[in-house]
Amino acid sequence: MQIIPLFEPGVSIRQREVAETLAEVYSIVICVDQVEKMYLKDVIPDESEYNRVTARLLQQYRAIMANNDQDHDFQMAFGGSLQEFCKRYGVIASNGVLRLEKGIPLTTEHAAAAGASKSSTSTASATNAAGA
């Protein structure tokens, strides 16, 4: 058997595009996971830095998902859910997966939880701030 190329000659430009998008999703999950682990280990001591970087990654993930929501090729390759995608590509990044599913940075999540015990209005504003 001969050398097997990354993309077989018959692979369409469309399929390559889907692979590029999946690579972005993959790298976002890994990166969000790493950033959160670094924050939890206090390697990133500045909370606003953690927030800035994580919010940006979450936003990029949301944009990719929104853009490809109706794309059949993408959805087939992605597997329909982040969990399924991670299973397919052997991603072990529980912090990253949870963060992307929740859609808000860890610090905002905790602020929201703390706010919820006092008043429901602060929870709403914290969530809105994260979405902005």
Partner: peptide, 18 residues
């Protein structure tokens, strides 16, 4: 850190696909 982790992540995806 973020930029390079993203870059390595992309490459790892293509490696796993391959």
């Amino acid at each position: 850190f973020v930029k390079k982790t993203r870059q390595l992540g992309r490459e790892q995806f293509f490696t796993r696909m391959h």
